[in-house]
Nucleic acid binder design. Sequence first.
DNA 1: CTGTTAGCGCATTCAC
DNA 2: GTGAATGCGCTAACAG
Lengths: 319, 319
Amino acid sequence: MATVSRVVNNNPNVKPQTRKKVFEAIERLGYRPNAVARGLASKKTTTVGVVIPDISNSIFAEVARGIEDIANMYHYNIILSNADKKKEKEIRVINTLLEKQVDGLLFMGGIVTEDHIQAFRTSSVPVVLCGTKDENNTMPSVDIDHEKAALDAVNVLIASGHRDIAMISGTLQDPANGYARYQGYKKALEAAGISVRDEYVRVGNYRYESSVDAVKHFLELSPRPTAIFSATDEMAIGAIHTIQDNGLRVPQDIAVISVDNIRMASMVRPTLTTVAQPMYDIGAVSMRLLTKLMNKESTDNMQVILPHEIINRQSVAQS
Amino acid sequence: MATVSRVVNNNPNVKPQTRKKVFEAIERLGYRPNAVARGLASKKTTTVGVVIPDISNSIFAEVARGIEDIANMYHYNIILSNADKKKEKEIRVINTLLEKQVDGLLFMGGIVTEDHIQAFRTSSVPVVLCGTKDENNTMPSVDIDHEKAALDAVNVLIASGHRDIAMISGTLQDPANGYARYQGYKKALEAAGISVRDEYVRVGNYRYESSVDAVKHFLELSPRPTAIFSATDEMAIGAIHTIQDNGLRVPQDIAVISVDNIRMASMVRPTLTTVAQPMYDIGAVSMRLLTKLMNKESTDNMQVILPHEIINRQSVAQS
DNA sequence: CTGTTAGCGCATTCAC
DNA sequence: GTGAATGCGCTAACAG
C-alpha cells in the first residue's frame, strides 16, 4: 500500500525491482490513482482556480491559454469560472473555488475591491491578479502599464502630426482598461501642449458596436478630429468601419490607433496600428508566479509589469 | 457533526431551530466545507472535465462559454484542458481528468478514435462529444450536420448563378470540419450537374493565413472561379482580403461564403455571408445532456444535431 | 528499502 | 430529529 504510493509519487526510496512489479500490477489491474483521496490526504489538489470575466472574449481567452500552458507544464489543472466582471459573482466563484481546495487562485476581472481581498484572505492559498491589480498594490499581480501604453499610442499620433485627437474610452470606472488608458491619453496631450476637449472623448463598452455612435459624434464636430485613439482594438475596428461607411478613408482622413493587438487587428483593411499587450504572456507569467508562491519559493518581484510594444500597421500614416 | 452535514447538504431532516443554530456557528467560525473530503466520501465532485482543442480559438471559446454557463446553472465546475487536437495529448488529458474523479466528461476535438473510446470506457462516468462525433455514432454527441451546412452554403452560390465554384477546405483527415464539409461541396455541385474539378479545391489549415496561397492559386486559373466556398470563416476572411489585395472586388468579381459565423464575420468589409453554426448552443446543449446522463435521467436522443442557418450578408450578391 | 498505522474532512449508515 | 461509528482511497510518519 505505502509502497504503491511511493511508486506512484516517484519516491526514490523503492528498489527498482519492486517498482517494476508495482507498475506491472498497476497495468494488469487497470489501477488509476484517485486524485481526490490524494488531495484529501496530502492537502494538495494540483488544481488552481481561474476567475475570468468571459472566456468567449478573445483577449481573456488568449490569457487563459497562457495560463493553461504553464499550468500544464507544472502539472496543474485549472478550474475555469466566468464571472462577467460582476463583483457578487466573482466573490461567489472565489469561495466555490476555495471550497474545492485549489492550491492557488488566478484572478482576472475588473475592479479588485476590499471585499475581494477579504475573500482571498479567508483562505491561505496564494492569489495572483492577472491583467489587473489592486489599488494599493498589496497583492501579487501581472499586468502591463495601461497608462503608459495609452500614452505611447497617442504619442504615435502626435508624432505623425495630429493635434485634433479624439478618444473612444472604456468605462472610467474600470481602473485598468478604462481609467488608466484615459489618463494616458490626457497626459500625452498635455505633454504636447494640446488641450483636452470633452467633446473629443466618448465612452464605449469595449465592444465593436459601441464605437459606432462615438464615431458618428466625432464626424459632426468641428474641427473634426483627424485621429482617433481607441481604448481597445475591437472598438477601433468598429471605428474604422464606421469611418469608411461614412465615405471617409483611414488613415488619410482619420487615423486610428488603439491598444490590445488582438488577432483581428491584422485582419482588417487597413490593418490596425496598435499597442500590443502580451496577452499570452500575462497569463503565462502570472501562472508561473503562482507556482512559485505555491511552492513558497522566494520571489523578488511580486508586481510584474510586462512591456508593451507599438505595432505599426496601416491605420496610421507613417511619418 | 452529522447534523452539520445535513444542514450543509440541505437535508430536510433537521429541526429549523438547530438548522439556524448551525448556520450561526458556520458564520461565526468562518467554516468552509471541504469539497475534496466531500468528494471522497460521496463519490461526487460536482466537477466535469472539458477537453478542448484550443481555448484561444474563438470558436471553441464560444462553445466553452455555453458549457460553463449551463454547468454553473447546475452547480458544476469545469476543469478545462487544451489538447491541440493531438491524439496523444487528448488521451493523457482524459486520464488526468478521470483521476481527478470528474463526474462527467465533455470532449471536443478532431477525430474520435477507438483509443479515445477505450479511454472513456476505463471509467464509468458519462461522456458527451461536443462539436464532433464518433464514426459509429455509439457515443452521445452534440453537433451540427457539417455536410448539410456545406451543401447549403454552396447552394447559395449556385442559386445566385455561380458555376465556377472553388473551395478552400480544411484537412480532409478531419471527419467533421474537413471531410464532411468537402463532401457537402461535392454533393452540391453534383446535384447541380457541375463537375468537380481538382484544381478548384485547396486544403488549408482553418486559419486566416492559409487561405492566401489558395486564393492566389485560384486567381491564376482559367476559367477563374467566380465564387469561393471556404470551410471556415477565418479562411474566408483571409480569402476576401487576398482577393481585394489583388485588385478584385467581393462579391462583384468573386463571391465568398463559408461556415461558422464567428463574431468577426460581421466585422469585415464586405460583411461575410456564412452558414451559422450555433457555437454557444452546442456547448450548452452538450452540457445539459451531460447533466442528464450524470443523473441517470433517461434521454431519448443521444445524438443531437443542432440546426444551422444561412446568414446573408454582403460577400455574396443577393440574387 | 518496505510494511504498519493513523488520520485527512466529510457522508452515510445505524442506533437512540 | 440527532449523535456515534465507519470508511471513502490515499499520504505521511513510524517502525522494522
